[in-house]
């Protein structure tokens, strides 16, 4: 046991300390990091899969989290591309004075007011802006007040930074940060909200229209007596009132692989991915 164990471990400890700065310098393999909106996520993931198949030397990592995470991650320099499904707020621009936010619109989407299929099938096929507003403030708390069965409304709100919430609240309340005092539950991603609504039989919530399915129904929005369904057609012709751009954001002018990737999404092949994900292509 004359081994210099202590010396050996001093070396290890020293190497641990040296490892830190070294690791931040080295290893610049072509990696594109992305994070943000779960509405943009499916497009980005599918596009990344195809892009990486053509460019095997490039690695694209994608994290969900919501539009707020997309902006913050780009602002903190943690990702190369942020994904957002709303505009960047003034506060966010103020928080990151050094970042030159550059927005690349890749598609269009609608935010649907969604309800449990049980309520939809029981007759609630449309809601007006005022009705939704009252549901979210708690003034209306039973489905029978809006033409449905005698059941309490389970009101699902979203985390404050989520793009879907910003767009939805901007239409319903005229304020993207509106407070919803009638809410019973807060959810996060589109998947989570879709799950919560499907599991409940009396829920109302807000979702990208691409998440509507047999358990989660999108109601028509009643505007001046006519009912507008959340459909691709109505997003395309601009009649559906709660629509938005889906965008990728970068810091300053594009360069390198990130540029190639965004160009790919804007290419006809990339735009087809936008369409098959349930959104409207912009080109």
């Amino acid at each position: 046991m004359r081994l210099k164990i202590g010396f050996l471990y001093s070396l290890i400890l020293l190497s641990e300390i040296v490892l830190l700065p070294l690791s931040s310098l080295g290893a610049e393999k072509a990696t594109i990091k992305m994070a943000g909106s779960t509405t943009v996520l499916p497009v980005a993931t599918k596009a990344a899969g195809k892009f990486m198949a053509v460019h095997p030397s490039i690695n694209i990592t994608i994290n969900p989290g919501g539009s707020g995470v997309g902006v913050k991650s780009l602002g903190n320099g943690l990702v190369d591309i942020g994904m957002i499904s709303r505009h960047i707020t003034d506060e966010e621009i103020k928080n990151f004075p050094k970042i030159d936010f550059n927005v690349h619109v890749i598609g269009r989407d609608a935010v649907a007011c969604v309800i449990s299929s049980e309520i939809y099938n029981a007759g609630v096929k449309k809601l007006s802006r005022e009705q939704i507003q009252k549901i979210y403030t708690g003034e209306i708390n039973n489905w029978k007040e809006v033409g449905g069965p005698d059941k309490r409304i389970f009101v699902i709100d979203k985390e404050a930074h989520r793009g879907t919430r910003h767009v939805f609240m901007a239409y319903i309340f005229g304020d993207e940060n509106a407070r919803a005092k009638g809410a019973n539950l807060i959810s996060g991603s589109n998947n989570e909200e879709q799950t919560k609504i499907a599991l409940s039989d009396t829920a109302i919530g807000m979702l990208s229209h691409a998440w509507i399915n047999k358990d989660v129904k999108g109601v028509g929005i009643e505007v001046k007596g006519s009912v507008i369904e959340p459909s691709i057609k109505n997003i395309q012709n601009g009649s559906y009132p709660i629509s938005r751009n889906l965008s990728l954001i970068t810091d300053g002018e594009l360069a390198g692989f990130a540029k190639e990737f965004i160009q790919y999404i804007l290419s006809p092949e990339g735009q087809k991915i936008v369409e098959t994900s349930g959104y409207v292509a912009i080109r």
Partner: peptide, 22 residues
């Protein structure tokens, strides 16, 4: 029997969104 929030669930929910700024 109602929904609520704990300190940890708040940190877990909003941590990624707020990290480092403001």
């Amino acid at each position: 029997f109602t929904t609520g929030q704990t300190i940890t669930s708040k940190l877990g929910r909003e941590g990624a969104e707020a990290l480092g700024v403001g």
